[in-house]
Amino acid sequence: MNEAMNMAKEALSLGEVPVGCVLVHNDTIIGRGCNATVRTRDGTRHAEFEAFDQVLQSGHPPSIFRECQLYVTVEPCIMCASALRLLQIESVFCGCMNDRFGGCGSVLPLHDCNVTEYRPYKCMKGTLEKEAIDILRHFYVQENPLAPQPLKKEKKRAKRAERLNKT
């Protein structure tokens, strides 16, 4: 989990939303990723996808994910949670929850909803939770210069701060 947090710090230093993850197979890290949405101009390049690609590029077969654990600083979003389900990951450990996008229970339960073809996976929460929230808060006092202008930015910002204080 500390390794994942290091990846998140790297993301922050690159001006990305600070989320980081590592994929572990037999106690060895086989893939790392940090958010790359700003750098690649692609809203889908989340840390998880960067890590998947790294694993596949280094020549591992796609079936290796069945024996992998994912450590990620923030609960995977619905997209990543679905992807993890399709890859049939063994289990996921995450730092803080993501009550806007979370796909492992917060918004939708992609980790254990009924899809017979793909086995469900366990999602354990709360490891290094405080650190994960702190680094996100640090990021969100700045703002994403690439996002389209929201209509009620001030209101949203207040809400976001409130929510972060709660969690």
């Binding site: 809203g43 619905i78 990543c80 679905s82 399709l86 992609l110 899809v115």
Partner: peptide, 24 residues
């Protein structure tokens, strides 16, 4: 589900599809 959320992240305006996918 993965693609659908990817479309949210990409701020798509509208989606048209023909065949429904009840599995996922």
């Amino acid at each position: 589900c993965m693609c659908a959320m990817a479309l949210v992240h990409s701020r798509i305006r509208r989606v048209f599809y023909a065949v429904r996918n009840p599995l996922f």
